[in-house]
Amino acid sequence: MITTLRGKNLLDLGELSREAILEVLDTADSFVEVNRRVVKKVPALKGRVVASLFFEESTRTRLSFETAAKRLSADVLSLAVASSSVKKGESLRDTIATIDALGIDAVVMRHRSSGAAVQVARYVPHVRVINAGDGLHQHPTQGLLDAYTLRQVLAERRGERARDTGAELFDGLRVLIVGDVRHSRVARSDVEAYVALGATVTLAAPGTLLPDGVREWPVSVAGDFDDALGDADVVGVLRLQHERGTGAFVPSLSEFTRTHGLTIERAARLSPSTIIMHPGPMNRGVEIDARVADSSAAVITRQVANGVPVRMAVLYLSVAGREESR
C-alpha cells in the first residue's frame, strides 16, 4: 500500500491508501490558484523531462497532462506512438527503451492493453511512470479528479474549504456508477478512490456489462437502475465503449438507453441535490441525454477543468518527490 505518492509511480489507484489520495487532492488544491494567475506557471519541475507516450488515441487526457506538465515548467516530449509501433513489430520494451535513451524523468502513458504501464515501470525502474489509462484496467488520474471534483462541489455547498474537510464529505456518500462497467477503466479507478475515501458505491449495468467477479468488489450491485437512482447522492455515468466491441453485449443502443441511460425522464426524478458526472467523451443520447449533460446538476466540465490541477499534483508528487525521498 502506497501511503504517499512522493517519488512513486501511479499505476493503479488500488495501491494508494486514503492518506495518499488525500495528499493528491490537497496538493491539487494548492495548484488551482496557479491556474487562475495571468502567468500560469510554477518552477516546480524546471529542468525535468516528462515524456507523454500515447499508444492509444486521446484528446482530453493528453492535453490535460501536457498542460499540467508545462505549468510545472517541465520539458514535455510528446510522442505520438498510437498503436502503429506494434504493427511495425516494435515491442513495448523497445519503444520505452528508445524514449528512455533520450533522457527522461517521467513517462505519462496510455495504452490499449491492460497492464502496459505496469510492464513499462518494470522495464525502466529509474523513470517515474504515470498511468494515463491502460486497457480496461485503470485510469488513476480520472479516479483522482473525480474524487477531487466531488469533494470540491460538496465543500462549496457547505461553504467550507475542500482541503479542510479531509475525507469527511465522503463518509456515507452514496455513489451510483451506471453503464459499461465491464469495459471501463474509469469505473475501476473510481471505485478504488471512492471506497478508499469512505463512500458507498453501487453499480448498475446490464448483466453482460458487469465485470467478472464483481461480487468480490467492495461494492453492491443494483438489481434495478431506477430503484437505485432514488438512493444516489452521486450518479457517475460511464461511456458505452463501442470501440471495445460493446455492441455484442447489449441487443441495441436504444435498448441500453431505455434500461440504463440517464434520460431526461430519469433525471427529472432525481433529488435536486444529486450530482451527475461523466468522464467523457460522451455519447449524447446513448448513456446520457444531452439536456441532462448540460443541466446544472451535471459537473462534467468541472471534471475536465480539474484534470489540470490534479495531474499537476500527481506529476509534482511523483517526479519532484523523487529527489526529496532520496
Partner: peptide
Amino acid sequence: NEGALAGRLGLVG
C-alpha cells in the same frame, strides 16, 4: 483465467 482477478486486472478471461 476468467474470474475476479481478471475482472480486476482488466484482462479478458
